[in-house]
């Protein structure tokens, strides 16, 4: 029983970040029909900025929590600028062009790999502990930081869900992702909606990166691991589907946790890939995919 609770909690903790990451991927795909491999770099730059600013601010005798919150603001701002540049000078010209946008994103991956290494160096960056202490839930220990991360992820996801179903922008985003031509006929300004979708996705990546920074290994290469798992999550859940991304994120996290617990981590990784193929055999559009 104890083991089961431990595994479920671990899955939820890992899944929280995968969900935020996959939501961004699925949103961009839904609106623009592009596969953005540089999404991991948006995530990475946010984590790197946090890792840079927090020790700096802490050096000015700022307590950990305010320093971290300021760091998050800076990280989101920097990430949004990078996202803006990516969109305006790149992806804007490749809407609904999967092949073209994909190569562009590969070029960006290589370019940003080099730039990050040059700017941030390869060393692992320390982020001081923001919320010290451990909480025990049903007999299973969880660090306060991880718990805060999960809570934040749930709030962000809930906000996004609310915005997608209730606000005008959200409805437009959904309309475009279901049928962009019909949406345009209804007077939805496609260009502006696509831009908004891309920026929201960038902000999600930024938040995910900023949240994970205090509990993980922050280096310029951090995005790659999440990118692969994020893509698997959205394939499993169905590209373009918000509930699908949530489901997929949890799915990947659960296999990683259970597989890693009973076998070893490498076998768990292979199991994830195999299960994706199985899912697609049954549902070629993912579990909740449409269109």
């Amino acid at each position: 029983m104890h083991t089961a609770i431990q595994l479920i909690l671990t899955s939820l903790q890992i899944g929280a970040v995968y969900i935020l990451f996959s939501l961004g991927l699925t949103l961009i795909f839904g609106v623009m029909r592009i596969v953005n491999f540089a999404h991991g770099h948006l995530f990475a730059i946010s984590a790197l900025v946090v890792a840079y600013t927090v020790p700096l601010l802490a050096g000015w005798n700022l307590p950990a929590l305010p320093a971290y919150l300021l760091g998050v603001v800076a990280a989101v701002a920097v990430t949004l600028v990078l996202g803006f540049l990516m969109y305006v000078f790149g992806f804007r010209y490749f809407q609904r062009d999967m092949v073209g946008s994909f190569i562009l994103s590969i070029g960006l991956v290589l370019l940003l790999d080099g730039v990050f290494l040059k700017v941030f160096g390869g060393a692992v960056r320390p982020v001081p502990e923001i919320l010290p202490g451990t909480v025990t839930i049903l007999g299973a220990p969880v660090t306060a930081q991880r718990l805060a991360l999960c809570v934040a992820a749930v709030i962000i996801t809930a906000l996004l869900y609310w915005a997608m179903t209730r606000t005008k922008l959200g409805k437009a985003l959904r309309a475009v992702s279901i049928d962009h031509e019909a949406a345009m006929l209804q007077g939805v300004p496609y260009g502006r909606i696509a831009f908004a979708g891309f920026m929201i996705a960038s902000a999600l990546a930024a938040l995910a990166g900023a949240l994970i920074a205090p509990v993980t290994i922050v280096s310029p290469a951090i995005g790659a691991d999440y990118l692969i798992k994020g893509f698997i999550a959205v394939i499993v859940g169905g590209l373009g589907s918000v509930p699908g991304a949530i489901l997929g994120g949890l799915f990947v996290a659960a296999i990683e946790t259970v597989g890693g617990f009973y076998f070893d981590a490498t076998s768990a990784t292979i199991a994830i890939f195999l299960l994706v193929i199985v899912v697609l055999l049954v549902r070629p559009k993912g579990l909740l995919g449409h269109g």
Partner: peptide, 9 residues
């Protein structure tokens, strides 16, 4: 980057 499952094992 996630070592929780490994540590739990």
């Amino acid at each position: 980057t996630e070592f929780q499952p490994i540590a739990a094992r």
